[in-house]
């Protein structure tokens, strides 16, 4: 990135100090990412959350970030330049900011096929928080989100090493394609990151012990907040409140295929809703990380 900045002719920009302000909110879809973004919003906003105006800085795959930062139209950029431009845009955004920037990311952590460098700009990354959720429950939530059956989700997404979202370039897409792969591969990819700290947080711990878990996360990333502020933000970002907002005002991040973004958010739904065959398939594909994070039941 520094090299690319230097290649740009303008000397002022080449001298721009690169700041490590980015905190990635990484997860496989439907794993508590939006909940945490709502919590951060409430923290920044005196306990108020509007799900259609979240105060985190954006989404890694968003085309708008690239367009606003680079003054180009994202759909017109050469496909071979997109990864480079995305990193450049967010490095710029990080470097002109005076505070930490939270970016949601669903991409599996990988190297760009075009320049063999990490897809995210590591030189402007402070840390990542990785939200991990029992894949058996993820499958149910994702089926609702995608408007697919659970069998389709298992076959086409959670069991597909090449699974991607926003991939169909024939349609108008507000986000760049994101390779997510299988649930297991996704978790493994972020566990292998050694360029910056990655803090893993279980969705189930967020549900069962919210105060302790959210406080720990803030401590890890050096975000200062009082007990009162944390309690107020947790209350504002409660699942029921977010769901009610969606019912009243809609949620701009809800895909057309889904009836509601905030579905149930419960733990252990799989025990009631998955067949033995579906459970076996998910376990077969995802065994290593299910064992690692305490989701394995014989």
């Amino acid at each position: 990135m520094k090299r690319l900045l230097k290649r740009l002719r303008n000397k002022s920009l080449a001298k721009l100090e690169i700041k490590k302000n980015i905190i990635w909110l990484a997860s496989y879809p439907k794993s508590g990412n939006t909940w945490f973004r709502s919590f951060i919003t409430a923290l920044k906003n005196r306990g108020e959350v509007n799900i259609n105006d979240l105060k985190t800085e954006g989404i890694f795959s968003s085309k708008i970030s690239l367009e606003d930062n680079l003054d180009v139209d994202a759909d017109d950029v050469r496909s071979t330049q997109i990864d480079i431009f995305k990193r450049l845009a967010l490095t710029y955004q990080s470097s002109i900011s005076e505070e930490k920037n939270f970016f949601k990311i669903h991409d599996l952590y990988s190297l760009s096929e075009f320049d063999n460098k990490p897809i995210v700009p590591i030189e402007s990354t402070f840390a990542a928080i990785y939200f991990v959720r029992n894949p058996l429950d993820v499958s149910i939530s994702m089926a609702n989100h995608n408007g697919q059956s659970i069998d389709q989700v298992i076959e086409k997404v959670m069991g597909n090493p090449l699974a991607s979202i926003s991939k169909n370039s024939k349609f108008l897409q507000h986000q760049f394609p994101q390779w997510i792969g299988t649930w297991n591969n996704h978790v493994v990819s972020w566990k292998q990151v050694d360029s910056f700290p990655v803090y893993f947080v279980r969705y189930e711990d967020m549900k069962q012990s919210p105060k302790e878990t959210f406080t720990d996360i803030l401590h890890n990333i050096g975000y200062e907040a009082s007990e009162l502020e944390i309690n107020r933000a947790l209350e504002a970002a409660k699942f029921e409140n977010l769901k009610q907002q969606e019912q009243e005002f809609g949620f701009r991040e809800r895909p057309g295929s889904s009836k509601s973004f905030f579905n149930k958010g419960e733990m252990g739904q799989w025990k009631e809703q998955l067949t033995k065959s579906q459970i076996d398939k998910i376990k077969q594909i995802n065994e290593p990380m299910m064992r690692e994070f305490g989701y394995w039941e014989d």
């Binding site: 690319l4 900045l5 290649r7 740009l8 002719r9 303008n10 002022s12 920009l13 721009l16 930062n69 680079l70 003054d71 180009v72 330049q81 480079i84 450049l88 845009a89 710029y92």
Partner: peptide, 21 residues
């Protein structure tokens, strides 16, 4: 210079736009 961005440097009446490659 009033604004410096990765591909754009400008003021009221001058603008340099630099698209790599």
């Amino acid at each position: 210079v009033l604004e410096v961005k990765p591909f754009s440097t400008y003021n009221e009446n001058e603008f340099i736009f630099n698209i790599p490659e």
